[in-house]
Design a protein around this nucleic acid. Structure first.
Length: 201
DNA sequence: TGTCCGATTGGT
DNA sequence: CCAATCGGACAG
């Protein structure tokens, strides 16, 4: 079957948890410099629901140079830099001025695996894209892709595999110990038993 | 401008 | 368990 980029309407839906779950099984594609497709199936995500979500960068309506991307119309990439060395790739959802976003936490490599191995030097295949920082390295994602339109040709998502609700697991998000009561929201979703899901908690 | 700290990772 | 490593947010 022919793959098509997900339509704008996929991203602009109001419930960020629904959009997050629906991202599982989709293909994230980032062409390399030579045009070669490098891609992975999304197997783990986390939803961030600003402004009420204490874990979100947009908590309390915080609107700065960094968070501005999340206030745009759904269907763009929100890429930011953390811990002095890693990028994180998010998909912005909902309509303009509602700062919802979904973090890609893990992928299952699909295309361009040789290039991923080079970029993730010395790591075995199961460790190429099983974490939010790792998948950005493997796919060559950096801050130049911040605010990139997902209907454009620099980065996009496609239909790939359908995932039945039975196969979707959920639990608390990772690495947000500062988020008070929002720590416990089960807004992390992953494909059950998939060996590329990130391990840490 | 100064301080604090992070939506992580890899090595001890 | 902990260091690496530096930009963002915010106080002053």
């Amino acid at each position: 079957m022919k793959s098509a980029k997900l339509p704008r309407e996929f991203y602009t839906r109001p419930n960020v948890l629904t959009v997050a779950r629906d991202l599982l099984g989709k293909l994230l594609v980032v062409p390399a410099a030579n045009g070669q497709r490098v891609s992975g199936m999304i197997v783990e995500v986390e939803a961030y629901r600003g402004p009420e979500d204490r874990a979100s960068h947009a908590y309390g309506g915080r609107r700065t140079q960094r968070t501005e991307t999340m206030y745009g119309l759904g269907g763009v990439a929100y890429v930011y830099f953390v811990y002095g060395m890693y990028y994180q790739f998010n998909v912005v959802s909902n309509v303009a001025d509602i700062p919802h976003a979904i973090l890609m936490r893990a992928l299952q490599p699909v295309e361009g695996i040789e290039l991923m191995r080079e970029r993730r030097h010395k790591h075995p295949d199961h460790n190429l894209t099983n974490g939010p920082g790792k998948l950005c390295i493997a796919l060559g994602i950096d801050r130049t892709l911040n605010n990139a339109d997902l209907s454009g040709d620099r980065v996009w998502l496609e239909e790939y595999q359908s995932v039945s609700p039975r196969r979707i697991a959920k639990g608390p998000r990772i690495g947000i110990d500062y988020a008070e009561e929002w720590i416990y929201k089960p807004w992390r979703f992953w494909i059950r038993d998939n060996s590329y899901v990130s391990r840490r908690s």
